[in-house]
């Protein structure tokens, strides 16, 4: 996950490299560390380094890491010839490596020859049936082919063994949301909250799933998780602010006529609305009237 400060640094390095200020290698290292997907930039900055034997040899053994990085970026950009060249050099250096074999399979994937890629992965799995990356690639193939149910199956099988891998849980959660299987998605988000309780994005996503599920109990829970998101982000998350407003409106509608005093107990929704107005005034003044009318229609200010 990219934290704001790191993203700033990434942007800074990017502009620096683009303006000819050097530091391409630092940029590439940071991309690798953050696992950011900036394939175009990686290709643009990495390839010149690889083409220049002088600067390439300066990297020492990191040269091969760069080859791998550029190869994957090239596949992402559909520059298959570049990827092929990178793979050729890697193959020459590490003829029997599984890691390189995996890259070759990924090249097959990039070409779109799914069946071949799948066969190749199956062969690799025979040697090492517990290779995490290959299991993930298999799920990715299924997803890329649009075969969502088999992707879910792959991920579930993977998670049965590697159940502490939160990235896989996250992927599964997003797939479930896309299929509108909200109960399952909620389970996955709970798992994510458990593994990283201080990441506000998971709280937010869980709240959204709960809100979508509906029902009084779920709405109340959703409101609480929106509140925790606000707490964790310091009130800067617009989605969470909107979420609080919507939740309290929905709860108000469900409990209309019943115990009124409970609804009045909290001034959170009106605070959230005020915070929203403030945010909009600062960042998007032209949308403010729109927001004002929306908030008014919610009748949050009593």
């Amino acid at each position: 996950m990219v934290v704001a400060a790191e993203e700033k640094e990434l942007k800074r390095l990017e502009t620096q490299v683009e303006n000819g200020g050097g530091g391409a290698w630092d940029y590439l290292c940071l991309v690798r560390k953050l696992k950011a997907r900036c394939s175009h930039n990686v290709l643009k900055f990495g390839l010149p380094i690889l083409k220049d034997p002088n600067s390439r040899s300066k990297l020492g053994s990191d040269e091969w890491t760069l080859y791998e990085q550029v190869a994957i970026a090239a596949m992402d950009c559909q520059q298959l010839e570049v990827a092929k060249d990178c793979l050729k050099s890697l193959c020459k250096k590490f003829p029997e490596s599984t890691r390189v074999a995996r890259l070759e399979c990924m090249l097959l994937e990039a070409k779109g020859s799914w069946a071949e890629a799948e066969n190749a992965y199956a062969r690799l799995l025979e040697d090492n049936p517990l290779d995490q990356a290959i299991h993930k690639r298999k799920a990715a193939i299924a997803k890329a082919q649009g075969n969502i149910s088999s992707a879910i199956e792959c991920l579930n099988k993977y998670l049965e063994i590697f159940m502490a891998d939160h990235d896989a849980w996250r992927e599964l959660a997003e797939i479930y949301v896309s299929l509108q299987m909200y109960k399952q998605a909620a389970f996955c988000y709970e798992e994510l909250i458990l593994s990283q309780p201080t990441v506000p994005l998971y709280h937010l996503a869980y709240a959204e799933v709960l809100y979508t599920l509906g029902g009084l109990e779920n709405l109340q829970m959703a409101k609480k998780y929106y509140a925790s998101t606000i707490d964790l982000t310091g009130g800067k998350n617009t989605r969470a602010l909107f979420g609080i407003c919507l939740c309290s409106v929905a709860i108000g509608q469900l409990t209309k006529g019943r115990n009124k005093d409970e609804k009045e107990a909290s001034e959170l929704p009106s605070l959230a609305a005020t915070a929203l107005m403030k945010e909009y005034k600062e960042r998007a003044p032209d949308k403010l009237p729109l927001l004002t009318s929306t908030v008014k229609s919610m009748k949050l200010f009593s």
Partner: peptide
Amino acid sequence: FEQRAEAVLKK
């Protein structure tokens, strides 16, 4: 967290 969020938002 609801109370805490309230405090955060007030600030």
